[in-house]
Structure formats: C-alpha cells, structure tokens
Design a protein around this nucleic acid. Structure first.
Length: 109
DNA sequence: CTCGTGACTCCCG
DNA sequence: TCGGGAGCCACGA
C-alpha cells in the first residue's frame, strides 16, 4: 500500500514508452503537485528498487541526467542509448524528438 | 510520532 | 549566465 501520489507516479513511469523520456516536473504535475518534482525524484528512487521502474527514462527540465557525473549517470545514459536515444553534444536529450507527455485523462490542457 | 534528507524547479538579484 | 533561497512533501530511520 502506498500513497495516492506514489501510486500515480508509479503508474505514469510505467507508461513511458520505450525510447522516450519525460521530466520530473511533468510527472509531478500529473501526480497533482506542480512543484513536487523533488518528491517525484525521491519516490522514483525509492520505488524503482521495489517496483523495478524504468527510472532511467526520467531526466530533469534541461533534458539532462540529474545524477552526478560518474558511474550512475553513465549507467543511465547507456540505458537510454540502448533504447535508441541520441544525446546532444552537451549530453542533453532533444525534447522535440524524445519528450513523452502522459496521455492519461489529462486533456484539461 | 518527529526529524533529516533529497534523481527538482522556479524566482529574484 | 549564474548563484542563492524558497517551495513542496514522501520516505526511511
């Protein structure tokens, strides 16, 4: 049993298509908290261990990996590249090409 | 229950 | 362009 927010976030993460990415902010908005990006990150981290979520498909607002440079970020990058995502020169991801927006019953905007 | 922590983001100089 | 401060709040100890 988890909180509604957590459940919603998990639900959204699971809907991210293969080869696509989204941001913490977008997920937070869909979870009901436009500034709950930190919670998304925390939940994502925590839940990915338990629910085996594709955490590597979530990046920050700049389209970049949030993890500190080093092994963790390298791992995420390699996972994304394995799905066909091409990184820009500055290691960012092109939103026009790869950004995915949850289709879930939103439509309010 | 309380407390510290944080894979973020926005706003203001 | 960049840095600091604030907001937000679930999770784990």
């Amino acid at each position: 049993m988890v909180s509604p927010f957590t459940q919603r976030i998990i639900d959204i993460i699971r809907q991210i298509p293969h080869g696509k990415i989204t941001t913490y902010g977008i997920i937070a908005e869909h979870a009901g908290s436009h500034r709950g990006a930190r919670q998304v990150a925390r939940i994502l981290h925590s839940s990915s261990r338990k629910y085996n979520l594709p955490w590597h498909r979530v990046v920050n607002r700049q389209g970049k990996i949030s993890l500190p440079q080093g092994q963790p970020s390298a791992l995420q990058k390699s996972k994304l590249e394995a799905e066909g995502i091409i990184f820009e020169i500055d290691d960012s991801i092109d939103f026009d090409t790869y950004l995915w927006w949850p289709d879930t019953y939103i439509s309010s905007k």
